[in-house]
Amino acid sequence: MISKLALNDVPDVLRKPLLVEYKRIIGNYLERNWLASELSGGRFAELVFAILEGYATKSYPTKIPPKPRDFVAACKKLESYTNVPRSFQILLPRLLPVLYEVRNNRDVGHVGGDVNSNFMDASAVVAMAKWTLAELVRVFHKLEIKEAQQLADSLAERTLPVLWKSDKTVRVLNNKLTFSEQILLLSSDAKGALPLQNLMSSLDCTNKSYMKKILKTLHDSRLVEFDPLASMVTITPKGSQESEKIIGNMTDPTI
């Protein structure tokens, strides 16, 4: 079985975004974007809930449903369905609130000597998401646990992360991308405005005039905000959406 056929019994309206969020969890973790991995874990939990509810009621939604107002209570209600596998009745409904809680209530201010929990939380999210997806695959495809885990792992298989970071610079590892695409990825990853000099260093570009020409095109397209006087580049919401598309095409354009 190839990965693009995984969970084919689940409607595309839930299956496709579920796999996208799963890939984001793994990808962000590889890139050490702990908070982004945790956020995808929350969205992943909401989609799994919709799948479990649809499986139990034999009625899947035709579009992504709004998240339940009380997620914990909604998951608890899933335990009342007796026509489903035990993991769909007990294990997953009790695991999903944990995934959801990490997203909602863990990134808070710490006092005293508290240690930042982002790495620890992101690691937990990855482990729970992998187990959850493997269990969905196992049930829907009637596979043994080992086979289900192998298929689940293949769904997130990425030879390299999108970005590589050292103490001094950030690199886009896919050198087949255009300069414009790499600029969007680097700008999207930056925490705020990105200095032009840092951007040029990441791209190994020494021609400032050429770089400014590309940035002006992106600026005119409203993908970035380029301030030539301050030599700063800031991604726009439109640019962030385009960056997500680039990453999606790199991970798996077939899902």
Rank of each mutant, 00 (worst) to 15 (best):
Y100S: 00
S117L: 08
V111W: 05
P97D: 03
V125W: 00
V125N: 00
A122V: 09
R106Q: 09
S117Y: 06
S117H: 08
N118M: 12
V111H: 09
N104L: 06
N105A: 08
R106V: 09
R106C: 05
Y100H: 01
P97A: 01
L99I: 04
V126K: 06
V125I: 15
L95G: 04
A122I: 00
L99H: 10
D121Q: 03
L95A: 05
V98A: 12
N104P: 01
A124H: 15
M120P: 01
A122G: 07
N105L: 06
F119N: 08
S117P: 10
N118P: 02
L95H: 04
D121A: 12
A122Y: 04
D114Q: 05
P97Y: 01
L99Y: 02
L95M: 14
V98F: 05
D121G: 03
N104F: 10
G112W: 08
A122S: 15
N116H: 13
L99V: 01
D107P: 01
N118F: 12
R94N: 13
L95W: 03
V108W: 05
N105G: 09
D121N: 12
M120D: 09
S117Q: 14
H110F: 10
N104H: 11
F119M: 11
P97M: 06
P97W: 02
E101M: 07
N118W: 05
D121S: 04
G109I: 10
Y100R: 06
V126N: 05
G113K: 12
L99A: 04
D107Q: 11
V125M: 01
D121Y: 00
R103G: 01
N104T: 11
V111T: 13
N116V: 14
F119P: 07
M120W: 12
D107N: 15
S117A: 14
A124F: 12
A124W: 08
A124E: 15
G112Y: 10
G109R: 11
H110Y: 14
D121M: 11
